[in-house]
Design a protein around this nucleic acid. Sequence first.
DNA 1: TTCATCACG
DNA 2: ACGTACGTGATGAAG
Length: 874
Amino acid sequence: MSKEKIVLLDGNSLAYRAFFALPLLTNDTGIHTNAIYGFTMMLQNILEEEKPTHILVAWDAGKTTFRHSTFSEYKGGRQKTPPELSEQFPYLRKLLDAFQISQYELDQYEADDIIGTLSKTGDAEGMEVVVISGDKDLTQLASDKTTVCITRKGITDLEKYTPAHVMDKYGLTPSQIIDMKGLMGDPSDNIPGVPGVGEKTAIKLLKEYGSVEKVYESLDKVSGKKLKENLTENEELAYMSKKLATIDVDAPITISIGNLSYPGPSEENVKAIYEELQFKTLLEKMSPETDSRPIEEIDVRIINDPESIELAEEMALHVEMMDENYLASEISGIGMTDGDNIIFIPFEVVIKSDKLKNWLQDEQKKKFTTDSKASYASLLRHGIEVNGIEFDLLLATYIANPSSTYTDVASVAKEFNYSDIQSDEVIYGKGAKKALPEEKILADHAGRKAQAVWKLKPALEGKLRDNEQFGLYRELEMPLAQILGKMETTGVKTDLGILRQIGIELSARLLELESIIYEMAGQKFNINSPKQLGEILFEKIGLTPIKKTKTGYSTAADVLEKLESEHEIISFILTYRQLGKLNSTYIEGLTKEIHEDGKIHTRFQQALTQTGRLSSINPNLQNIPIRLEEGRKIRAAFVPSEPGWVMFAADYSQIELRVLAHMSQDEKMISAFREDEDIHTKTAMDVFGVDKDGVSSDMRRTAKAVNFGIVYGISDYGLSQSLNITRKEAGKFIDTYLATFPGVKQYMEDIVSDAKLKGYVVTMMNRRRYLPDITSSNFNLRSFAERTAMNTPIQGTAADIIKKAMIDMDARLKEEGLQTRMLLQVHDELIFEAPEDEIEKLKQIVPEVMESALTLDVPLKVEWAYGLSWYETK
DNA sequence: TTCATCACG
DNA sequence: ACGTACGTGATGAAG
């Protein structure tokens, strides 16, 4: 039988919290809705996470409470509730009614007291109790069965106070929270407390004596003359304050827990209120699949005669597949439209139609697609090379705003107010129920997508032109899509024998390590479980936890490294982790991805990253190990696909710092790159004021870390973590660095203020990233946005450059008539496979093309290597 | 599904 | 005082 659980919410506190956390929103009728919206978000989260069997929202009643008779100025000096908030309360009440959640208020009592009383009762009845409020005072209610959740920043983030957490945070028991308030007071409630006693002193006193009463019993033992004096003179104030802060757990409430059971919301009533308030996103969330708006009927003709297809000069098309992995999925057919007629050509007809194939391959016939790379690669697998692609909905959307989440055509169409299209999930179902529907439905679905492309093209192209991004989209991303499609289709030959060999060795060593670790721990456990490992290390063995995560002790590598000298088990665990990672992710993971052709075909996501980089999935070939020799050996499995061929790799040296030198126009940095100096050594020389011979390896390491930090949008804390030094020391390094490179300092300041002004940053090729948080009043959000503002133009410009190089490289290989194939891109490097006899040529043209992809005020530098496997290209 | 961890640039 | 380095993807554990 499942346990009963009651959730008690402090209505006023949460409404206030929501009101101030969100900007003022209004609906068409002019009612403010931000508090209602925020409250609803919190509520939904809570209902989802806690799944209560019982629930109550408690409200404060009226102006005066029993506390005012103790102290007439209780809650004095409080600002009047803003009218923009007051007007929202009636709606909140209505909304809660619609949710079928009980509400209660009691004359002369505050919401706290109602909650306290019910939590005590619930606790006594053996229920699990969850209290939710924005007021930390309620933590005094925490017990074994009662968890108190206090809103943290934002609106849905809650901090959970159990007695253990209260102890962690204050070193006090929940009931001592009252004593703490008694001593220190609470300005927000106008509770006076003892003058001169703040949180620190209060906690110190309570740790020593236990309670306000005990403090006064042993007053003569209290150290500090002034403190003793203050305590003596304000004894009454302390007792009164304690009384004010104490939640009444025996309020004369007239409801019982039995009446509070939660039947779930009345969907109909909730929907009506959402509609009244115009909560669009919440409405959609309620019924994503039953969007009731009538979808416009369209007439999609299914073509069965291969030669009867009517093809225009310009057409929108969509290659329909069930699986998102277009490199493996079967094609169902192609939906097409010329703006008037919509047709669907089943795949078996496509294959038979020379007319269609010729049209697809004809450069002169213009195609508008949803995702040109997917269309291109999926048809290329069947020997059809699509040419003349003029529009790509996915890329256009991404360039216009990289944060737009493109899941399927429906989601994008919706954003442009074109909604006559359903999501793929609705058509195919999800999870185990995913299946191919009948052809008529598929035809309709694919036809609608083609129609959406046709209709959305003008708006998107207009937007890109307005933003001066049309060139980036049309001359960089679109040509690249085709090249990436080719690379994906080509794939990388993978030597299964080598993977197996490494796998066998790893398994043997893992088994050995496992038994050593069990022996040292004195028991068997799952080493891969951070939870179990944490218990062994920090409870059983008794090592000192250095860091904690949300769920328990951190056992991350940097933490374990600090503990290495404490216990010999640590180094075995670190090795076990390292090898385990290699085995599961790389040996087993990659083995599963080898296709029948003996190759791995990754897919490059071209419309995902916020900076303009590519990403690689199924599998990720951009994170194959290299830093440690043992992992690096994995690279030996990636080999040329033809006998007599070799792997050839070329990478940009320090491309991000070169971009920074150019963008910041810092003279010192520019000259360092022009002289082709070791940039980290040069940085060390300038920052530490020594000559070349005076640079120790430690100084160079520091300089390198600072350079990295600069690229990431430096913070003293971040640098201190990476160098394992104090924040203060890190801060000093940064100051010295910025004084040494004034151009960089100026650039960082300018880019942030520019981002604040415009709301976005740009790369050299006009790629944009919007940063709405840069003006946030929340320190964390704002700081993050500021670092992003500093980093994105650098990382993004580097991404622009290598993309341009890929396009130039593809053209050059054709021009030179070479057989060499581009296989992979790993952010600053390109991997090729090539016939041995083309190597001499590559040595010359690869660096030439890559270095001239874009002209900066510093040279770009490319280094290359080749060998019989990827491992050998070093 | 979410979290912690760890692989890469 | 706040709590962080920037950008990714895959895995196993655990709810």
